[in-house]
Amino acid sequence: MNIFRLVGDLSHLLAIFVLLLKIWKSRSCAGVSGKSQILFALVFITRYLDLFTNFISVYNSLMKVIFIASTVATVYLMYIKFKATYDSNHDTFRIEFLVVPVGGLAFLVNHDFTPLEILWTFSIYLESVAILPQLFMISKTGEAETITSHYLFALGSYRALYLLNWIYRYYFEGYFDLIAVVAGCVQTILYCDFFYLYITKVMWGKKLSLPA
């Protein structure tokens, strides 16, 4: 474990709970893409199947349980409890256009052709594009609530910190996983224009609005 990965995991945890609290407190999921949340739930479920078979540490197992539980809870709040506030008119990204190609790629490009490894690879590839429905929804509505932009900033930062973690681990532990690094780069690049807007606008107390 290194500081980049620890701060990255905490940033990820923060993002998930900022969103969960926003929905719970405001009793509304306006401006939030339910499709992205479904994809994130799929990412965690397919990635943490080894939760009971491969014990790494208490921290690792605890975080896996928290990530799965909190993301499933978010999907529940969005599609069941506060369904009336779900903005389905703007959350129209066709996620099958993500899941199918990512599923195919996981079969073709992976470290080992075993079910667990292919599912892990699928999860890594899917996570890199899972935010697209959310970014697409913001581009359609033209703006995002400030709390939603904080959520996105923390979520985008987590994988950027993981890139630093992989640089650290490469030099100090000789650890390198090309699939995770490439997908992590794609994932972080997708946030670049959002990061620019966040830093130039939200940091100065303005609302995040995309140029019309």
């Binding site: 080894d50 690792n60 975080m63 990530f67 993981y162 650890y175 996983d177 995770a180």
Partner: peptide
């Protein structure tokens, strides 16, 4: 190439 490292990252 099968890498034997356990998946220790989240």
């Amino acid at each position: 190439d099968k890498d034997t490292k356990a998946k220790d990252e989240l």
